[in-house]
Design a protein around this nucleic acid. Sequence first.
DNA 1: CTGTATTAAATGTAGGAACATTAAATACAA
DNA 2: TTGTATTTAATGTTCCTACATTTAATACAG
Lengths: 151, 151
Amino acid sequence: MSIETDIKQSTPFRSPYQRVIVNLMYTSNWIAGNQTQLLKPFKLTLQQYNVLRILRGQHPSPIKVSDITERMLDKMSNASRLVDKLVAKKLVLRTECPSDRRAVDVIITEKGLALLKQLDTHQDTLNKSFEGKLTAEEAEALSHLLDRLRA
Amino acid sequence: MSIETDIKQSTPFRSPYQRVIVNLMYTSNWIAGNQTQLLKPFKLTLQQYNVLRILRGQHPSPIKVSDITERMLDKMSNASRLVDKLVAKKLVLRTECPSDRRAVDVIITEKGLALLKQLDTHQDTLNKSFEGKLTAEEAEALSHLLDRLRA
DNA sequence: CTGTATTAAATGTAGGAACATTAAATACAA
DNA sequence: TTGTATTTAATGTTCCTACATTTAATACAG
């Protein structure tokens, strides 16, 4: 369905660029909604999930809070408090960084890895639902256009 | 710059679909950040701006709060309280709907229209910055791929 | 009509996001 | 070294979001 129909837009967009911006944000919100629903039974927010995946990418190396912030999709959110929540759930460990006492090393626990593994299955199911809509080549083309939009 | 570089991803994405989802959300957050900065001097949040634009699309007809919710990019946000804020700034008017006393008619004021007109200029500048990055055809192709992703 | 279901908007709430500030450790120039 | 600037994480604050509930009006079956 076209974005105009989805948001019941009465007046046409002023340019294809305006249209793509609205479409992008609408589609992103739509996906975030799907993801949030998927995570709800596991008591994880989307941001907490992102942090866990970043930590898994580094495992078994630790990573600093500032590195987490740098890699997060939403740069503005507060990695320190997100790590708090994950520590409380015993999904990550926080230890003082030996080489710089200002910094804090964060590492994902076995419990965290196990939870992510469980979520991978659901994630793959969600991803598969896209396979019927776009070919792999089209998905790549879409990624490439997004990269160029941000250039 | 590729999304992998932007988020300093160490392990490759598990599929082009996974990649496009992350890319989409990253790009959307990036644009939302730009827009939020643009609106800040005008003391408008992105959501309030969206509501105002929806109301302009209907002007001079009024529109119900439920219709606003339907057309918003983020379906989950609370149109009722957003309208509160806009009423407080005298950018919109709220009146009881004559045909259904449960409903509330909302209409944009002259002050609201003037503010939007001012913002259009800035918006066009932002849109122009995309013209150097994608051709109009590519922007259309991007919109179309997004439409199909949501299908 | 009468009672039940549905719809519209507002509101209560817990938690999250955005942004500024603080506190401590480190870097580094004079 | 000494003092200033910078970096790192944590915290304070205000507002917003997501979701559930409430209140009121309307629809509609029986």
